[in-house]
């Protein structure tokens, strides 16, 4: 168990470092890198403009810049955002809570809705309910996150509802597939033949079988929610990590983008690894 945790932690660290390096490389290779609009300010002296130019010099070598920034990050120094002119650490602290609340509410709502729909279609199996649930999921899968965010603004709905509507169809689809796959298993048929009630069969025989897959799906759904938070926060004007990553990408703000990329990748990888770890069967000692 301990070696499994260590192996996963190592993979998380490698993925975060590699992801951060990739995003830093992309910014470094982007056209217009190193250009600073302050250089066009005629009020500034030549010495000041030279100082601005030399301040970007240490960013030219991407590997050196990246590993220097990683070392600084480990010491707790996240640098200063060039576009927002504020410490990155402060920005991340403020905004992470907003995104966590938004994604958390959205995830909770989507999982609740998906579970309720599956319960309903299992205990009240009417064709009308089945068709309407399928149509709803299908329609939501066809709508881009940006459109849902715009519709939420139009109809004055909370942003977490948009996250829920984006996550819900995927969760519902996979959950119902899992339940459907288990339904025909011999132990389920035996339990039914013995006269066990539908709720007992579900809780005692279906849930333990799909537990591991459900945990894996939970990990994946966190990634979907974080991804969806970018257009939702950018369009709804919510000051979270999604909006911050959008501003960092648009402003080509290297220190900010690096840290946001590592934070987002870290969250997603940790969620997936945590879900895998929780779903692992404990080894039985012989």
């Amino acid at each position: 168990m301990r070696s499994s945790i260590l192996r996963r932690l190592l993979m998380v660290v490698i993925t975060i470092v590699a992801g951060g390096l990739v995003s830093a490389t992309l910014v470094r290779c982007a056209p217009g890198f190193g250009a600073d609009e302050r250089q066009l300010d005629s009020r500034l002296s030549n010495d000041t403009i030279n100082a601005i130019q030399t301040s970007h010099a240490d960013e030219r070598n991407i590997v050196r810049f990246f590993f220097a920034s990683v070392c600084k990050t480990l010491r707790g120094d996240f640098g200063v955002s060039r576009s927002l002119n504020r410490p990155v650490r402060q920005l991340l602290q403020e905004r992470a809570a907003v995104t966590a609340a938004l994604a958390g509410k959205g995830l909770a709502l989507s999982w609740l809705a998906a579970a309720l729909m599956i319960f309903a279609s299992r205990f009240v199996p009417t064709p009308a309910l089945g068709i309407s649930v399928t149509l709803l999921s299908g329609a939501l899968l066809c709508l881009p996150a940006g459109v849902l965010a715009l519709l939420a603004i139009l109809f004055n709905q909370p942003a977490y509802l948009v996250i829920a509507l984006i996550v819900y169809p995927k969760v519902h689809r996979y959950l119902s597939n899992m339940v459907e796959a288990v339904r025909g298993m011999p132990h389920i048929l035996t339990a039914r033949a013995k006269g066990a009630s539908e709720s007992r069969v579900f809780l005692w025989h279906v849930v333990p079988v799909i537990k591991r897959d459900v945990l894996a799906l939970a990990g994946v759904s966190i990634g979907i929610a974080i991804s969806a938070s970018i257009p939702v926060e950018a369009l709804c004007g919510i000051p979270g990590i999604g909006q911050l990553s959008w501003q960092a990408a648009m402003g080509r703000d290297l220190p900010l983008l690096n840290n946001v990329a590592m934070l987002v990748i870290g969250c997603v990888v940790l969620a997936n690894s945590g879900a895998d770890l929780l779903g692992e069967e404990p080894r039985q000692s012989s």
């Binding site: 992309l26 970018i230 080509r252 983008l257 997603v268």
Partner: peptide, 21 residues
């Protein structure tokens, strides 16, 4: 493949597209 799949799709797309002219 695992590395690329661990980065949220829209986030990756956003970074790369914003980096281009």
């Amino acid at each position: 493949i695992d590395l690329v799949l661990s980065i949220p799709w829209l986030f990756l797309l956003l970074i790369v597209r914003a980096m281009l002219p």
